[in-house]
Deep mutational scan, measured.
Amino acid sequence: MATGGRRGAAAAPLLVAVAALLLGAAGHLYPGEVCPGMDIRNNLTRLHELENCSVIEGHLQILLMFKTRPEDFRDLSFPKLIMITDYLLLFRVYGLESLKDLFPNLTVIRGSRLFFNYALVIFEMVHLKELGLYNLMNITRGSVRIEKNNELCYLATIDWSRILDSVEDNYIVLNKDDNEECGDICPGTAKGKTNCPATVINGQFVERCWTHSHCQKVCPTICKSHGCTAEGLCCHSECLGNCSQPDDPTKCVACRNFYLDGRCVETCPPPYYHFQDWRCVNFSFCQDLHHKCKNSRRQGCHQYVIHNNKCIPECPSGYTMNSSNLLCTPCLGPCPKVCHLLEGEKTIDSVTSAQELRGCTVINGSLIINIRGGNNLAAELEANLGLIEEISGYLKIRRSYALVSLSFFRKLRLIRGETLEIGNYSFYALDNQNLRQLWDWSKHNLTITQGKLFFHYNPKLCLSEIHKMEEVSGTKGRQERNDIALKTNGDQASCENELLKFSYIRTSFDKI
């Protein structure tokens, strides 16, 4: 039985969820670079991206490699990797027998973001014989899940209580170790020597080791999670996991709180800001991140802002960003909400898709409305799209047979046209069989910064309504002859009103 693990408890099935942008060198404390989270699957090609990484700022997932063999891993080693800020997950990587050479110096898994409450997941690794993470000293947050690894031993010899604050939620089941077939031998045991430290858990006094050649490092209890030197002297209180010299914040392997210019500090002093819960960055760093993602459509890219001495992905609820200094300031009234469309555009074809934009005031991208039916549609669209004030790209209304009016965009005031449909149009209306009105132009103002209007096959939309939009939106004169079809717009509506004058002759039985 794995020490510190839980057996036999019912657990939810383990679901495996399925960018080499360097964020800056980590400095003297770390020998390499800070790398983003990685999802490495199918083959070993991307694994080489770990070569210079000291910190993975995010998670590391290595999974679904069915053609790899043990010899493929023999020359692979990433000794610079010290810390993973989120979680480490391995799933069905064939041929991998140990992690001792792959990650010989991995010391800390912070667990800032977890995989279903777990910071370390080893699942269905069919050839893994031992973990071998002999320098792993601290899992700051989260638990361990090690399950269905039929060859995995050296679990009962690990004292997880020396690595985690609590072992109650560890789930370590259905491994070879369960069948008591392992016969784990710690260093020196074969020669009758006791080389590794022994600890007591559940009444068992057991030597602690990761492999037959690597003991588990056990520091004096007084050192807590700070770690200790090879001689057993406690590291500085700002260290986490390990250090090369005692009581020196510049000799830590990793930091308990924050890293700044080669030393570990309790908090980031001005003019620095907390970033990702582990390091200090200056304003320029946060500003660069903001600008890199301002026009990016890459998933996970955030326009970072500053709030409460932190550089964070977005302002919290009730705050909006001051564009001059990136500071989050309290909103006066309802907060603006910028919604970034991942692929640059979004099609609204149902109430469900409209709900995804609920509360958005600025759309960074283009909207395509293609709704053919739905219950209580006008009210639903207004509830979900009615706060949109600005669209950076274009607005396209296409084959939306259920629409009679666009009044559900009740606050839309600006279409920038930074991206144009077919390279020309910022407003595009095609084949809307029941569209009769755009907006009530006596109450609604709309500016279209650039781009043209396109109207074709809107049989109940009168040309007068379209011409009014040209005047109000500032697009009059931009359109070419064929942009607004004269014969297919309003051709099934009563669009022309003329005053009919009647004269009559009164007659009676005795007068003409």
Rank of each mutant, 00 (worst) to 15 (best):
28 H>K: 05
29 L>C: 15
31 P>G: 15
31 P>L: 11
32 G>H: 05
33 E>N: 05
34 V>L: 06
34 V>H: 10
34 V>E: 03
35 C>K: 00
38 M>P: 01
39 D>S: 09
40 I>F: 03
43 N>A: 05
43 N>L: 05
45 T>E: 15
45 T>F: 05
46 R>E: 06
48 H>G: 01
49 E>S: 15
50 L>I: 09
50 L>C: 02
54 S>L: 03
56 I>A: 00
56 I>Q: 00
58 G>R: 00
58 G>S: 00
61 Q>N: 05
62 I>E: 01
62 I>Y: 00
63 L>S: 13
63 L>I: 05
64 L>P: 05
66 F>K: 09
66 F>S: 07
67 K>G: 02
67 K>A: 09
67 K>H: 01
67 K>D: 08
68 T>W: 12
68 T>I: 02
70 P>D: 14
70 P>N: 02
70 P>C: 06
71 E>P: 05
71 E>W: 04
72 D>E: 15
74 R>Y: 08
76 L>M: 05
76 L>N: 01
78 F>Y: 12
79 P>R: 05
79 P>F: 03
80 K>Q: 05
80 K>D: 02
81 L>D: 00
82 I>E: 14
82 I>Q: 06
84 I>V: 03
85 T>A: 04
85 T>M: 06
86 D>P: 00
87 Y>G: 01
88 L>F: 09
88 L>W: 00
92 R>T: 05
93 V>T: 08
94 Y>V: 10
94 Y>Q: 15
95 G>S: 05
97 E>D: 04
98 S>P: 00
99 L>W: 01
99 L>C: 03
100 K>C: 13
104 P>R: 01
104 P>Y: 01
105 N>S: 11
107 T>M: 06
107 T>S: 10
108 V>R: 06
108 V>G: 01
109 I>G: 00
110 R>E: 03
111 G>L: 02
114 L>W: 02
115 F>Y: 07
116 F>H: 04
116 F>I: 11
118 Y>W: 10
119 A>Q: 01
121 V>S: 10
121 V>R: 01
122 I>P: 12
122 I>S: 04
123 F>Y: 09
123 F>N: 06
123 F>I: 15
125 M>P: 01
127 H>N: 05
128 L>G: 01
129 K>T: 14
130 E>A: 06
131 L>S: 03
132 G>E: 01
132 G>V: 01
133 L>E: 01
133 L>I: 12
136 L>T: 03
136 L>G: 01
136 L>W: 01
137 M>T: 10
137 M>L: 08
137 M>A: 07
137 M>E: 06
138 N>S: 14
138 N>P: 01
139 I>H: 01
139 I>G: 00
140 T>V: 12
140 T>I: 07
141 R>C: 03
141 R>S: 05
142 G>H: 01
142 G>W: 00
146 I>Q: 04
146 I>H: 00
147 E>M: 13
149 N>L: 00
150 N>H: 05
150 N>F: 04
151 E>T: 02
151 E>G: 14
152 L>R: 01
154 Y>M: 08
159 D>G: 13
159 D>C: 04
159 D>A: 06
161 S>K: 05
161 S>G: 08
164 L>Q: 05
165 D>K: 15
166 S>F: 07
167 V>A: 11
168 E>V: 08
168 E>R: 12
170 N>V: 10
170 N>D: 09
170 N>M: 09
171 Y>I: 14
171 Y>V: 08
175 N>S: 10
176 K>G: 04
176 K>S: 08
178 D>M: 15
178 D>R: 08
180 E>S: 11
182 C>T: 09
182 C>F: 15
183 G>E: 14
183 G>F: 07
185 I>Y: 06
186 C>W: 02
188 G>L: 12
188 G>Q: 10
188 G>P: 09
188 G>N: 03
190 A>H: 11
190 A>G: 05
191 K>R: 10
193 K>N: 11
193 K>T: 10
194 T>R: 07
197 P>I: 13
197 P>L: 10
198 A>C: 09
201 I>Y: 13
201 I>K: 06
201 I>R: 05
202 N>T: 10
203 G>I: 04
203 G>W: 05
205 F>W: 15
206 V>A: 05
206 V>I: 04
207 E>A: 11
208 R>S: 15
209 C>L: 01
209 C>E: 05
209 C>F: 02
213 S>G: 11
214 H>E: 06
216 Q>P: 06
217 K>L: 12
217 K>S: 10
218 V>W: 11
218 V>S: 10
219 C>N: 04
219 C>A: 06
227 G>I: 04
228 C>P: 02
230 A>F: 12
231 E>G: 15
232 G>L: 08
233 L>G: 12
234 C>E: 03
236 H>F: 02
237 S>P: 10
239 C>P: 00
239 C>I: 00
239 C>N: 00
240 L>N: 13
240 L>K: 04
240 L>M: 04
241 G>T: 11
242 N>E: 13
242 N>P: 10
243 C>F: 01
243 C>R: 00
245 Q>G: 05
246 P>L: 03
246 P>I: 06
247 D>V: 09
247 D>S: 02
248 D>F: 02
252 C>A: 01
254 A>K: 03
255 C>G: 00
256 R>N: 10
257 N>M: 03
257 N>T: 07
257 N>L: 03
257 N>D: 03
260 L>I: 13
262 G>R: 04
264 C>P: 01
265 V>F: 01
265 V>M: 11
265 V>L: 08
266 E>K: 15
267 T>R: 01
267 T>E: 02
271 P>M: 03
272 Y>P: 02
273 Y>F: 15
274 H>R: 03
276 Q>I: 04
276 Q>K: 08
277 D>A: 15
279 R>C: 02
279 R>A: 08
279 R>V: 05
280 C>H: 00
281 V>L: 02
281 V>D: 00
282 N>R: 15
284 S>T: 09
284 S>R: 13
284 S>A: 13
285 F>Y: 04
286 C>D: 01
286 C>M: 01
287 Q>I: 09
288 D>Y: 05
288 D>E: 12
288 D>G: 11
290 H>I: 04
293 C>G: 02
294 K>N: 02
295 N>C: 07
295 N>F: 10
295 N>Y: 14
296 S>I: 05
296 S>G: 10
298 R>Q: 03
299 Q>C: 07
299 Q>P: 14
300 G>W: 04
300 G>T: 11
301 C>I: 00
303 Q>N: 08
303 Q>C: 14
304 Y>I: 04
305 V>G: 08
307 H>Y: 09
308 N>R: 09
308 N>P: 01
309 N>K: 04
309 N>Y: 12
309 N>H: 13
310 K>T: 08
310 K>W: 13
311 C>A: 01
312 I>L: 12
314 E>S: 07
315 C>S: 00
316 P>Q: 03
317 S>N: 04
319 Y>C: 04
320 T>V: 11
322 N>G: 06
322 N>Q: 11
323 S>F: 11
324 S>F: 13
324 S>P: 14
325 N>S: 15
328 C>L: 00
329 T>N: 06
331 C>K: 07
333 G>I: 04
336 P>Q: 05
